[in-house]
Simulated assay, not measured.
Amino acid sequence: MAASPFRPALDLMVQYARYHRDRRNIATHFVGIPLIVFAIGILLARAQVELGGYALNAAWLLWALSTIWYLTRGSLVLGLATALVNALLMALAEPFAAAAVSTGSWLAWGIGAFIVGWIIQFVGHYYEGKKPAFVDDLVGLLVGPMFVVGEALFALGWGRGMLAEIERQAGPTHLRDLAHPLA
């Protein structure tokens, strides 16, 4: 049984990091996860939702709901940054779903980006030698974008305390020796 999806950001990041310590895997996630979020934006942008008298496409509705979740995990900077990156991906996705775009083209872009994103993810997990985090806990699908944004922020010098605690609990990043994977 999966733990609560309403855990603090640090707990979520530690759990996700336990599946992502190989630097090659983390690098693939910088491409794969944005592609998947972008693809979801494309695929959901044509579905219109009526909410309080306002028409909203399903991509932006999902963005709003996920943003509420990110902002309530206890790390305002990480939540805001993740919401902003996801908003940029949703905005970039909209033209690929526009009414002027043929249905075939819309589906090709959406499904194509989704499949390519997941292929890149699975290549990373080959290097890691572990299954993706969402296999054990579906909340990993939400944590993935937060993890990538967090890794980018850590690289820029933000969140040193959070990074230290992640590494204390999940271990440091490394390059797994593929010639001796059990060593």
Rank of each mutant, 00 (worst) to 15 (best):
3 A>M: 12
3 A>E: 14
3 A>F: 11
4 S>E: 03
5 P>M: 03
5 P>C: 02
5 P>G: 05
5 P>H: 03
6 F>P: 00
7 R>H: 07
8 P>Q: 14
9 A>L: 02
9 A>S: 07
9 A>R: 00
9 A>Q: 02
12 L>I: 12
12 L>Y: 06
13 M>S: 11
16 Y>D: 00
16 Y>H: 02
18 R>C: 10
18 R>N: 11
21 R>M: 04
22 D>H: 02
24 R>M: 06
25 N>P: 02
26 I>A: 04
27 A>T: 05
27 A>D: 07
27 A>L: 09
28 T>V: 05
28 T>A: 02
29 H>P: 02
29 H>N: 05
30 F>C: 07
31 V>G: 05
31 V>C: 05
33 I>P: 00
34 P>K: 04
34 P>G: 07
35 L>N: 02
35 L>D: 02
35 L>V: 07
36 I>A: 06
36 I>S: 03
36 I>T: 09
36 I>G: 03
36 I>M: 12
37 V>G: 00
39 A>G: 11
39 A>V: 12
40 I>Q: 11
40 I>F: 13
40 I>L: 15
40 I>R: 05
42 I>A: 11
43 L>A: 11
43 L>C: 11
43 L>W: 12
44 L>R: 04
44 L>G: 07
44 L>V: 14
45 A>Q: 10
45 A>Y: 12
46 R>L: 12
46 R>S: 14
46 R>D: 12
47 A>K: 13
48 Q>T: 14
49 V>S: 02
50 E>N: 14
51 L>Q: 06
51 L>D: 06
52 G>A: 04
53 G>W: 06
53 G>R: 02
53 G>M: 07
57 N>D: 15
58 A>E: 10
58 A>I: 13
58 A>W: 09
59 A>E: 08
60 W>K: 01
60 W>F: 15
61 L>D: 09
63 W>Q: 05
63 W>F: 13
64 A>K: 03
64 A>E: 10
64 A>Q: 08
65 L>G: 14
65 L>V: 15
66 S>K: 10
67 T>Y: 01
68 I>M: 11
68 I>H: 10
68 I>V: 15
68 I>Q: 10
69 W>V: 06
70 Y>I: 11
70 Y>H: 06
71 L>H: 04
71 L>Y: 04
72 T>N: 11
73 R>F: 09
73 R>Y: 10
74 G>Y: 08
76 L>V: 15
76 L>C: 09
76 L>N: 10
76 L>P: 07
79 G>K: 00
79 G>S: 08
80 L>S: 09
81 A>T: 06
81 A>C: 07
81 A>W: 03
